[in-house]
Design a protein around this nucleic acid. Structure first.
Lengths: 361, 361
DNA sequence: CTGTTAGCGCCTTCAG
DNA sequence: CTGAAGGCGCTAACAG
């Protein structure tokens, strides 16, 4: 029926199939059907401050409905000079630590009518940089970087450059992690939390510890290790080199580290894994090797990820309000423009003693 | 230094602050710096088939690098008539079932240079429809709908309309779930899987069952219940009304359903929860009420989500290759244009017997 | 209150 | 191989 908008009335023989190249309906189509100008249609259909008479408004709405009109956000973005898209860059969306934070971010984004695209770096800092560039290309209104920074200076510089370019283009930036970039950041107090944990574990009577410490270059892991060491030191306990086992910041990393611990035959009563997923992996490794938690060894983690809920034995950890942290980061990124100096929101951790760490008599 | 491109040489007193309204660098800036035309710059910077001399190419690249140029994808999208964005609509991204599938989709998307935006319906079918409209507005190249359909006809019609409009605009669509929409779909064989599970559980000696059946209106839940019933029937065992407990398709839904089961004092040896997260919740409820799994009651789930790995006792379930299903859906959505009839990829489930279901002597 | 007219940043025929 | 010019769909002054 509808002539697809073509003026041409002749169809070449080659075009017999007439593959009805589908075209999305444009604002112009709506305006024509409603018998009004483009601007009027635009004003009623999109949040303009300008007033339109009830009658015209009705006609436009009616036409839009009839045609199933949906605005082309790209055209809007280029015309308005800004998009409704925000980027969320995480190390691993399948890791409950990140998916909880992501849930918080998404909730706030939704309230602001923003679309969030999730970028999964798969724990690769290079990809992280690449994603910021990508989001710049998308003219994202904001990017939220979630996850630890690293010790590598060169990496940080490259990321900082990319971030600067992004902000120069008018984008907002927020981080959840160490404050290493000139941007608003939500900072979990890793060091203090680990220190408090150490104190409480000593309080349970433990004296001989091992730490599954994660990657040496990852700041979150380092901070937690350092805090834990502080806490032990305060009780006159030192942590030797051989009591620290580095590895991946993942469940499998925890598993491997625990196996290494067993292999070394280290005589400890308590193991601190610098995050929960590692602790979960460690417990699995212990189980596989006939080491019972907490009877034979106590285990503690960090984060209090939601999946701990169904773990047996329940895991001692340092609670972080993950979803709230996401909400906070989103507020920093979407809320009122900050002053000149980046803001810092400190988030304290809270030690939660559960079944996985037993009291030594 | 750079005069921000303004011709005006006078700054009003009111403008003393000179808030250097930041502007992203455009292709024109690059072209000017390189001393070439817009078209030439465009040709070298973006994947054009046209050839450009090495010298000019070098100059353009150099200028782009110096300026930190990144193309405005919105402008590209409006000019090209298509974007590099794909939408992934899931019921709950924090649920491991969905995050595993999402990981598969993202991997393939990345290979295609596509950006995926994740839309979380929070298990609300209305939001699902809204998201498809949103993605149409984004002129997404494709949308992938992951998650069960429902019995509600009116809901389905509205979704179908939205999907049709999306395709009319040139978008591709793929689903992971029942084939209720005229789109390519990846279909897990829920019914056959549940049937096989029932057979194997009967093989273990169980005769008295209960099913935590999820929402009555959710097709995936219904199919699994029906399949399970089939399997039992084949062994001459019937499933009465009071042996079926409906509830939410979540961990908490499983918990509540199991409590209800306990409250009813039903005498069963084996409980089938129609998905793993419900089974996990059920086990937690049993534990909380002093019912030991599998000594007092056996429990089985469906899906084989990755988090089962650290569950004790390990859970009997029907394995689905979740990440692969995501990959498959992405291939359907991004790969070569389908023929006229929607394609269907059936994915069989495989029963995996683990510790949570014991053999009755 | 409504319509006309420039752009927004980029791509792509179409001439040179 | 290069440049000039029109157009993508929409918004926002600017007139009426």
């Amino acid at each position: 029926m509808a002539s697809a908008g073509r003026v041409c009335g002749l169809t070449s023989l080659a075009n017999v199939v007439d593959r009805q190249e589908p075209r999305a309906t444009r604002l112009e189509d709506v305006a024509r059907l409603a018998g009004v100008s483009l601007s009027t249609a635009s004003r009623v259909l999109n949040g303009s401050t300008r007033q339109v008479s009830a009658e015209m408004s009705r006609r436009v709405l009616e036409a839009a409905r009839k045609l199933g009109y949906t605005p082309n956000v790209h055209a809007q973005a280029v015309a308005r000079g800004t998009s409704n898209l925000v980027g969320l860059v995480v190390h691993d969306i399948a890791d409950p630590y990140f998916s909880s934070i992501a849930a918080g971010v998404m909730r706030v984004a939704d309230e602001h009518g923003l679309v969030v695209t999730v970028c999964n770096t798969i724990r690769d800092p290079d990809r992280e940089i690449g994603y910021v560039a990508l989001l710049r290309a998308q003219r994202a209104r904001a990017v939220i970087l979630v996850g630890s920074r690293f010790t590598d200076k060169e990496l940080l510089t490259r990321l900082a450059n990319e971030i600067d370019a992004f902000r120069r283009g008018g984008g907002r930036v927020a981080c959840v992690s160490q404050r290493k970039l000139a941007a608003d950041t939500v900072l979990p107090e890793n060091r203090a939390g680990a220190r408090a944990l150490a104190r409480d574990l000593v309080g349970l009577g433990h004296r001989r510890f091992a730490v599954l410490a994660g990657p040496e270059t990852m700041l979150t892991a380092r901070d937690r290790l350092a805090g834990f060491r502080d806490g032990l030191a305060a009780a006159g306990i030192s942590l030797e080199r051989d009591q620290i086992i580095h590895g991946a910041f993942t469940r499998d990393g925890g598993y491997a580290a625990a196996e290494e611990l067993i292999r070394r035959g280290l005589d400890v009563t308590c193991v601190f894994a610098v995050n929960d997923v590692m602790a979960v992996g460690a417990i699995a490794a212990f189980r596989a090797h006939g080491v019972t938690v907490p009877a034979d060894v106590s285990v503690a983690g960090f984060d209090d990820i939601v999946t701990l809920r169904d773990l047996v034995p329940s895991l001692t950890t340092v609670h972080l309000p993950l979803e709230e942290m996401g909400v906070e980061a989103a507020r920093l990124a979407f809320g009122p423009e900050p002053g000149d100096t980046p803001r810092l929101v400190r988030v304290p951790g809270e030690v939660v003693l559960r079944e996985s760490t037993r009291r030594l008599t």
